[in-house]
Design a protein around this nucleic acid. Structure first.
Lengths: 210, 210
DNA sequence: TCTAGGCTGTCGATCGATCGATCGACCACG
DNA sequence: CGTGGTCGATCGATCGATCGACAGCCTAGA
């Protein structure tokens, strides 16, 4: 039986997760695979081990639950990206670090990222605006890495349009990792990130490997 | 007023499209924006200018309609890709041509490609198998362009794993065009394809522009 | 220490709305 | 007078969401 420090406020790592966490887990799994509209309240409840009525003790509407998952995922991504930005002043090296980060997150947490990337269309009004604003804030970090590279002799980005094109291409290419990467495959996670960083640098025309 | 050749069998370009075409158009628009489960039969009927009952005179089930859209889109893509393959023997030039083709199709027909790319998850059983088989057949064309490039001194693809990684990266990057490209933007379609071909060649490490 | 009262969490039952799909009737046209 | 196309009405099922009931537990006051 596991010993627990009396002063330990966090739950034991092997403890049964509480209802809120189970709901989150179920929604992540089902929204990512079946989609928001393809997932029913009762299906969600069964997966979480609760009745559909109990679900509503923890969440607002089904849409509120989706928005919470999306904002949570994007908040995490933004925090990580802004941390990279803060500690890597050189735009080219920062770009490579952002690629590694984006690839790692999409490979390790495909459900979170797929919900964010694929289910924005089901939102509208203020909820959609809020999520889109977060996504824009994340992409702004990429902009602040790519835009200063325009005219940099180390790369081949002729103008702002080329930088915008490269930004979209890189984001889509790295986001796509969530569509096909399987953790049980032969490719290790770190190698995946390095390979994508190398492809990204070549894509923007970087000559030296460094 | 446009003159029409009397022997012309195709419908006049400005004629009212028939019901089947209107259904197809409505389904394309709604499935691409709202998703399959987010689109109701009545919504579909209203968009097509019909009653929901009349819909069933033309289609089988709602799922049959989706499968028809998907197979139609994939058949077109496969035919175009195999035509490129037939007339371009050099793998590197063929890869560039495939990139141009994929980008053009995703920019010009974002609804078709988005339905194919995003809605596979709602299918299961035989229908899913059939669509996945078509998608695999399309990607096989890409495999047959990239795999022979392994070890080719013109590019930097060390082994089969690198080729597979590049294939996925390129497909995702070019597919993503359907997510953001707008025909009314400043970027012309041909320039878009050329830019992506250039990025693709750099991504695989091609040195010469030719 | 005992107990009354109020939270917290859970559920079965059920609400009105909408879902995908079907039916028989009707209409225009050949 | 049959056939292809269209529709209103309606089917049973399922949808998202709500309700009242109640069990367990914590705490305050006797």
């Amino acid at each position: 039986m596991p010993r627990r420090t009396p002063a330990e406020p966090e739950p034991a790592p092997d403890a049964e997760p509480d209802a809120a966490a189970r709901i989150r887990e179920a929604a992540l799994e089902l929204f990512a695979t079946r989609g928001f509209h393809g997932t029913g309240i009762r299906q969600l409840a069964e997966r979480a081990g609760l009745s559909s009525a109990t679900l509503y003790h923890y969440m607002g509407t089904k849409e509120d639950l989706l928005v919470a998952l999306m904002t949570g995922g994007l908040d995490r991504l933004i925090a990580l990206a802004e941390a990279v930005e803060a500690e890597e002043p050189d735009p080219l090296r920062r770009l490579a670090a952002l690629v590694r980060l984006h690839v790692r997150e999409h490979a390790e947490r495909p459900r979170e990222t797929r919900v964010v990337d694929d289910q924005i269309g089901v939102l509208d009004g203020a909820a959609r605006d809020a999520v889109v604003a977060l996504r824009d804030r994340y992409e702004d970090v990429w902009r602040r890495a790519l835009d200063p590279l325009v005219g940099d002799p180390r790369v081949a980005l002729a103008d702002a349009a080329a930088a915008a094109l490269a930004r979209r291409a890189l984001l889509e290419m790295c986001t796509g990792v969530a569509h096909w990467y399987r953790a049980d495959g032969a490719l290790r996670l770190e190698a995946l990130g390095e390979a994508h960083a190398a492809m990204a640098l070549r894509l923007v025309g970087a000559t030296s490997p460094r």
